[in-house]
Write a protein that binds this DNA or RNA. Structure first.
Lengths: 341, 341
DNA sequence: CCCATTTGAGCAATCGTTTGCGCAAATTCA
DNA sequence: TGAATTTGCGCAAACGATTGCTCAAATGGG
C-alpha cells in the first residue's frame, strides 16, 4: 500500500560498497565470474538484507526478454483446455517463466490478440490453441515477432506443432468397441473443418474398414465440442435404422450430451447402447453411467509445448514438433457387449 | 521468425518529420493536446503506415505501469475458478489490461508467488483467490507493493474483498428444501476453516432454526470442494439414523460425489433423497439426475473484482468491497418432496 | 506597431538494468 | 626484476519510451 520506493541495484551496490555492474554480475551468476569470492559474498548478503528484487521492466528493456509466455485458448470452461493450461503453467514456472492466458473466443473478429501480446514485446513466445481456420492462423502468425508453437493441432506450413495422435486415439477406441462385439458404431464427430475432428473421423473409419465393416455416413454426426452438440447429434443418429449399438464421441462434453439425450429417449446405457469418448477428464467419472474413455495426455501436452517453446526462445532447439500418443483405455461402466436380441 | 528490428518511436518521428516527444504526445492523446491538427494527422498516419506498437517494457520502465493484472487461484480444473477467470479476463481486456494467471496449489509451501508477481513490478495489481489461512495471507499481503483485492472470501483486516453472500445462498437453499417438506436435511459442508465453508454452514443452520428444527451436528459432514470429499461425506451421513431425506452440498463437485455415492448405495435421487448444491456450473446439467442449484454470479465476481482493482490502480477508487447476492434457484430434477413412507 | 500571451514542438533527463570496454593491481613467467 | 598476463571491478553507453522545460513563432490586445 505505502508507496515505498523499491530497492534498486544501486542500493545494494552502495550497501556492499561496490558498483552496480558488479552487483548485476554477481546476481546473474555471469559465466566467467570475474568477481572475488569475498565481494560476491558481500553483495549477496546485502541483496538479501535489503530484500532486493530486480525490476522486470528495466531488465526486460535492456535484454528484450520478458520471461513471460503467452497462451491463447478459445475457452476456459472446457476441462480439456483447463488441463492444458495447468500443465503449461507448471512447466513455465519450472523454467522461470510466467504465463499470460488470453481467451480468444471469437474466432474471426479478434485481430488484436497476437498483436497485443507478441508485437508489444509483452511475451517472449506464444502458444496458440485457438480454432481459426488454418489459413487465417498461418497468415496471422506470419507477422508474429516471437517464437510460437501451435498446441492441440497440426497445421500445414507450420513446423512447430504439438498435437495428439487423434487418428490413433479414435482408431483404438473404435477397435475396443469392435472387440466388444459391436458392428453398428456411430460417431459423434468433432468439428469436421478442423484437425482433430477430421483425424478422429479418419481413425474411426480406419478401424471399421480394417474390421471389414462398410462405413455408413449416416452413422456420423458432427457434434463439435459442446454438450448441446452432443445432444443434437444423438437425436440425429437415433433416426437411423438400424440404430447403432455403440457410440464413439470425439470429446467428453459431447459424450455427456449423448448420455443426456439417450436417457431422455429412454435408451439404457450400456444395456441398449454403449457410449465412450476420447479425453479422460474428471467429468467422465461423474456421469451416469461413468464414462469409458480413451486417455490423452492433457497436462503433458501443455508441458511439452511449453518446454519446447522455452527451448525455442533460449535457442536450445529450432523445432518443436510432437505427436502425442494416447495413454490407453479407461474402461468404466458405459460400455458393454451389444444386447443380443 | 526473422529478427526484424521492431519499429520505434524514433522511426515514426523521422517518418513524420517531428520529434519523438511529439509522437508520444499524439499517440497518448495527451490531455492538453498542444499539437496542431495537421501534425497530429501526419504522425498518426506515419504510425499506422509503419505499424508501430509501443514497447511495453520501455513504457513500463518509464511510467512504472505494466497494464497487467495478476490473479492467483488454487485450482484451474474447478469450474468455479475457471468461470471467475473468464469474467476477469474479459473485464481486464475491456480496460486495456492483460491477465497473468498463477496457480498456487500448495497452500503453505509457495512463498514465491506474491513476491514474483508483485515485487518485481510484473503486475500493477493482484487478485488473490487462494486458500491460505487468513493470518498467513494477511501477513503476506502486508508486504505487497501493489494494490490487491481478495476474491471469493472476506478477511478480517483486509478491506478490499469481493465475496459471495454465502450465508444467504445456503439459507435460501435450505429454505427451498424445507419448503418441499424436508425436515431432516444434511449438509455437505465446504472447508470449515474457511470463509465460504463456515458461512454456508451458518446459513444452513439459520434456516433450520428459523423453521424450528433443532440442528443436529451429525447431519453435517465436511466434504471440502472435491468429488472425493463428496463421496466420503455422504458415506458418513448415511450412517445417521434416521437418515436425512435431503442434502445441501456447499459446492457442485461435492454434490457430484454425493450423487455417485448415493447411486452406489442404491438410494434413488430424488425419490429417496433430494440433493442440491450451491454454484451452478455446466456440470450440474450433466449429472444424473440433473442437479438443482443455487446460482451465484461467478463470472460477474471476476468482473467486479477486476474492475475494482483497476479502479484502485488508476486512483478512481480507494476501496473495493462487495458481497455478491445469489441469483436464485435453478430447479432441476434432483429435488422433490420427501417420500411419504 | 509593440508588448504580452498563447500555441506548437524540440531538448534532454530519466526509469533500473545489462554489458562491452578499459584500467589498475595482482599474479605469473623467464 | 621486468615484462606479460590475468584478475577484479568500475565507467558509461545503451534499451525505448515519457515528460518537465525551454523557446521561437504566431496571435491578440491596446
Amino acid at each position: 500500500m505505502t508507496k515505498k520506493r523499491s530497492v534498486r541495484l544501486d542500493d545494494v551496490a552502495t550497501a556492499a560498497g561496490v558498483h552496480t555492474s558488479t552487483v548485476s554480475r554477481v546476481l546473474n551468476n555471469e559465466a566467467d565470474h570475474r568477481v572475488s569470492a569475498e565481494t560476491r559474498e558481500r553483495v549477496l548478503s546485502a541483496a538479501k538484507e535489503l530484500n532486493y528484487h530486480p525490476n522486470a521492466m528495466a531488465r526486460g528493456l535492456r535484454t528484450s526478454r520478458t520471461h513471460t509466455l503467452g497462451i491463447a485458448v478459445p475457452q476456459l470452461d472446457n476441462p480439456v483446455f483447463a488441463q492444458i493450461i495447468i500443465g503449461a503453467t507448471a512447466a513455465a514456472h519450472s523454467r522461470g517463466y510466467d504465463l499470460l492466458v488470453s481467451l480468444v473466443e471469437d474466432v474471426s473478429g479478434e485481430s488484436g490478440v497476437y498483436e497485443r501480446l507478441a508485437h508489444n514485446n509483452r511475451v517472449d513466445g506464444l502458444m496458440v490453441s485457438t480454432l481459426e481456420k488454418d489459413e487465417v492462423l498461418v497468415e496471422t502468425l506470419k507477422r508474429a515477432s516471437v517464437p510460437y508453437v501451435i498446441v492441440n493441432r497440426k497445421i500445414r506450413g507450420v513446423v512447430n506443432c504439438v498435437a495428439y495422435d487423434s487418428f490413433a486415439a479414435a482408431k483404438e477406441s473404435t477397435e475396443y468397441l469392435l472387440s466388444l462385439g459391436h458392428r453398428r458404431i456411430g460417431h459423434l464427430a468433432g468439428r469436421l473443418t478442423g484437425y482433430n475432428g477430421t483425424k478422429r473421423l479418419a481413425g474411426y473409419y480406419a478401424a471399421l474398414n480394417a474390421a471389414g465393416i462398410e462405413s455408413d455416413p449416416q452413422m456420423v454426426a458432427e457434434a463439435g465440442y459442446t454438450l448441446e452438440g452432443g445432444v443434437r447429434a444423438v437425436r440425429s443418429l437415433l433416426a437411423c435404422k438400424p440404430r447403432p449399438t455403440a457410440l464413439l464421441a470425439a470429446t467428453v462434453l459431447s459424450a455427456a450430451g449423448a448420455l443426456k439425450a439417450l436417457y431422455a429417449a429412454g435408451i439404457i446405457v450400456p444395456d441398449d447402447m454403449s457410449v465412450m469418448s476420447i479425453h479422460d477428464v474428471q467429468i467422465a467419472e461423474m456421469l451416469h453411467p461413468p464414462l469409458t474413455t480413451m486417455r490423452l495426455p492433457l497436462q503433458e501436452m501443455g508441458r511439452v509445448a511449453t518446454l519446447g517453446l522455452v527451448d525455442l526462445i533460449e535457442g536450445k532447439a529450432t523445432v518443436v514438433s510432437k505427436l502425442m500418443r494416447p495413454e490407453g483405455l479407461l474402461i468404466r461402466a458405459s460400455t458393454a457387449p451389444p444386447n443380443k436380441l
